[in-house]
Amino acid sequence: MSAALPEPAPTEDIGVLVVDDHAVVRRGLTAYLESAEGIEVLAEAVDGKDALDQLQRLATEGRLPQVVLMDVLMPRMDGIAAIRAVLTSHPGVRVVVLTSFGELERVHAALEAGASGYLLKDADPDEVAAAIRSADRGEVHLDPTVAGRLTRRLVSPPTGLASLTARERSILALVARGMSNHQIAAELYISERTARTHVSHILAKLQLTSRTQAALVAIREGLVTPPSS
C-alpha cells in the first residue's frame, strides 16, 4: 500500500491595502475581497498620502501588504504620484489601479509609474481578485478594454490631433490664440523652455513647420474659435 501524499502547506493570504476617496467604493471592495479566497484586506486609505501613512504603519507592525489596490483620481495626492511614492518607499509592494478612467494617457502614466495592473471600475469582482493575484506573482494584468485600446494604438499609431497629449492640445489652443512661448509658460506655470519643447513636439507630430500652420489646424479642427473679422 503506497504511503499517503503529504498535504500541501497552507499558503499565506495576499495582504491588500484598498485606496479610494469614496467610502462606499472602499467598503464594497473590502467586503468582496474579504470573501475572496487567499486575499486579506489589511487596511483602507482615502487618498495617496493616507496610503503612504497606512503602509508605514503596517510595515512597522510587520504586516506590509503585498498589493495596493488604488484609484488614480484622488485629492491631496493622486494615484500616479502615489504609485511612484509607494514603489520608492516599499519596492516589494505591487500596485493595481482600479479607476473609472480608461484614457490611454492615464494608462501609460500608471504603467510608466510602475503599476502592475490597470482595471476599470466596471470590472467583474472576480477579475479584480485575479489582478491582485497576478500582481502578487509579478505579472501585469490589464482590463480587456484597456488592453484592446493599447493594442490598437500599437497597430495603428494615432495621427493628427489624436496624436497629441491633453497638455499638447491645450498648448496648441494657446498657440492658436497667438500666445508666445513666454506667455504660454506664464499661463500654464511652466518654464519657457518646457513650453518651447512642447510646441516643437506639437509641430513634429502634426508634421508642420510653423506656428501659423499649427494655429490654422487648431481652428480647422474646432479646438479654438476663429477670430471674428
Results as ranks from 00 to 15, higher is better:
Thr88Met: 13
Ala81Lys: 06
Gly148His: 02
Thr99Lys: 04
Ala82Gln: 01
Ala81Trp: 01
Asp126Leu: 15
Ala51Arg: 02
Glu44Thr: 13
Gly160Ala: 09
Gln213Trp: 08
Glu37Lys: 13
Leu33Arg: 05
Asp21Arg: 07
Glu139Tyr: 00
Leu42Asn: 02
Leu172Pro: 05
Ile39Asp: 00
Arg177His: 12
Arg137Ala: 10
Ala85Asn: 05
Met179Ile: 04
Leu119Tyr: 01
Ser100Met: 15
Val24His: 11
Ala9Gly: 10
Val68Leu: 04
Glu44Val: 09
Arg167Phe: 10
Glu139Asp: 15
Pro8His: 07
Glu127Leu: 12
Ser35Lys: 14
Pro91Phe: 09
Leu17Tyr: 00
Thr60Gln: 14
Leu52Cys: 07
Leu98Gly: 00
Ala215Cys: 05
Ala36Asp: 08
Pro91Lys: 07
Thr225Glu: 15
Ile171Asp: 00
Gly102Glu: 06
Leu58Pro: 08
Tyr118Cys: 02
Leu150Gly: 08
Asp13Gln: 12
Ile190Thr: 01
Gln207Trp: 09
Ser200Pro: 02
Gly38Ile: 10
Pro157Ala: 07
Arg152Cys: 09
Ile39Gln: 04
Val25Phe: 09
Arg193Ser: 12
Gly114Val: 02
Gly160Arg: 04
Ala51Gly: 00
Gly178Ser: 00
Thr88Cys: 11
Ile219Glu: 15
Leu33Phe: 08
Lys49Ala: 13
Thr151Phe: 11
Asn181Met: 06
Pro65Gly: 07
Thr145Arg: 11
Asp47Phe: 05
Thr11Ala: 15
Ala214Val: 06
Gly79Asp: 01
Ala185Glu: 05
Leu111Phe: 04
Thr165Val: 11
Glu221Trp: 08
Pro144Ala: 08
His90Gln: 09
Pro226Gln: 15
Leu164Phe: 08
Ala43Gln: 01
Ala135His: 02
Ser180Tyr: 00
Thr197Glu: 11
Leu150Phe: 05
Leu52His: 06
Gly79Asn: 00
Glu187Tyr: 04
Pro91Cys: 06
Arg84Ile: 06
Tyr118Gly: 03
Val19Lys: 04
Thr30Glu: 13
Lys121Gly: 08
Met70Ile: 07
Val97Gly: 01
Thr197Ala: 14
Asp143His: 05
Ala9Arg: 13
Leu29His: 01
Val19Thr: 04
Val97Leu: 04
Ala218Cys: 07
Arg153Glu: 11
Asp126Cys: 10
Leu206Ser: 03
Ser191Glu: 06
Glu7Tyr: 11
Gly117Ala: 01
Leu55Thr: 03
Asp13Leu: 10
Val16His: 05
Phe101Gln: 13
Thr165Glu: 03
Leu174Glu: 05
Ser2Tyr: 11
Glu12Phe: 10
Asp53Thr: 14
Gly38Lys: 05
Val199Ser: 03
Phe101Met: 15
Glu61Gln: 14
Val140Glu: 06
Ser229Val: 15
Asp21Ile: 09
Val97His: 01
Gln207Pro: 03
Gln183Pro: 00
Glu103Arg: 14
Phe101Glu: 14
Leu87Phe: 09
Arg57Pro: 10
Asp53Asn: 11
Val18Trp: 00
